[in-house]
Every structure is written in structure tokens, then in C-alpha cells.
Design a binder for these strands. Structure first.
Lengths: 89, 89
DNA sequence: CGGTTATTTAGATAATTGTCTAATTATTTA
DNA sequence: TAAATAATTAGACAATTATCTAAATAACCG
């Protein structure tokens, strides 16, 4: 869970996920959406990849990023546990 | 959401939430559960409080911490959106 | 092949974070 | 009121993080 929380603990990375929710995008298309250098975006993508939240597939000279939400299941389960069972009086 | 993700991005703080899910506890009772100094735990409790995840009420010389899960609703909603609507083909 | 394009890797730096010890505040109690 | 207990605040320090520029890798195209 550590890599997951770490990946989500940044507004740029969460925004990248929001973008990828709409469509698969190349690294360059993602970078265009931010006022930040490409290496910085590349680094954010790497952290998302480490957490398993995105997958990267090379297509020619481009790298296409795809969201993968299955890793969120564990987080979702934890959240629901915390929320529903909090010391009922 | 920033304070929330920040608060959750630490295993000690998540474990504190797990403890408070079972029962309200004083700062000292929480500190007992960890191999860490009281000031460190106090700092973690402060971050949880800043995120709205816990509430502190003074009772004599003790401070009792209570979990508050309502702030998790926004996170839960975001997670569900990300998960359910990810670029259906 | 040589130049251009897409992206990452490497290395540096400032800011943030987690932890500690020491000091402070507040409350209880003998 | 003085000592003890509960907890926080303050300040220091090492580790991590987000960002940048410069360099490297890889693929395309004239």
C-alpha cells in the first residue's frame, strides 16, 4: 500500500490519473497539460508506474500510458473497513 | 484533498486510524502501541487532525482522540469515479 | 547516414518530512 | 503548593521528494 499512497500524494499525479481516465495518452500529450518540464512529468509517471496505477507500452518512438485501476481495490477495501466499522457505540 | 492524502501517506498514521477504529484512545494509549517517542506520535496525531481524520477532546490531563471518517467520503467518491469510468472502450 | 522528435536518465538543489531530545504547558494529587 | 503525570511545542538533523537543466537513448524520416 505504501507505493500506492505515495503515488496518490501529489496533485499532479492525481491529475494525470484523471486525464488517463478519459483516454490513453502518450507521455508528451500528458506533459502538454502541465506547466512543468517533461523530465518532471516523466518522473511522476514513473512513480505512478511503480504503484501499478499506470502501464506504459512503447509504440514506435512514443510511449503510451494507460490507467490501471485494479490496484485501487485494496485501498478501496481499506477505506470501506475504516469507514463502516468505526467503533459503533 | 491534499491534507487528506498527506495524512494517509504514512504507515504509522494509517495504523493509528486502524486503532481508533476500534476505540477512542488517549494520546498516551496510542503512543504505547508504537516503538516511537511521544512527541513523534503527537506530530502524527496533529497531521491526522489537520486532515480532519481525528478529533481531540481534552478530558482532565488526558486528550482523547476520536476517528472521524466523514472526510473520507470525498476520497471515496474520487476513487469510485476513477475506477468505474476509466475510458470504457 | 544525419537531423529531428519523443522520452528517459543523471545529477543538482531547495523544500518537505519523520524522527529525536529538551523544554513548556496543563492538570492532578499528596 | 510542590511533585508527578500527560501531552504538546520548539528546534535540530537526516532522509525523501519535486523540480530543474543537461545528457543519453531510441525511433523516425528526408
Amino acid at each position: 500500500m505504501n507505493a500506492l499512497f505515495k503515488a496518490l500524494n501529489d496533485p499532479t499525479r492525481r491529475q494525470i490519473l484523471d486525464l488517463l481516465r478519459e483516454a490513453d495518452l502518450t507521455a508528451g500529450e500528458i506533459a502538454e497539460q502541465f506547466d512543468m518540464t517533461r523530465p518532471s512529468i516523466s518522473h511522476h509517471l514513473d512513480l505512478l508506474k511503480q504503484a501499478g496505477l499506470v502501464e506504459a507500452t512503447k509504440k514506435g518512438q512514443f510511449i503510451i500510458y494507460t490507467i490501471n485501476t485494479t490496484v485501487l481495490d485494496e485501498l478501496l477495501a481499506w477505506l470501506l473497513t475504516i469507514r463502516q466499522n468505526s467503533h459503533p457505540q
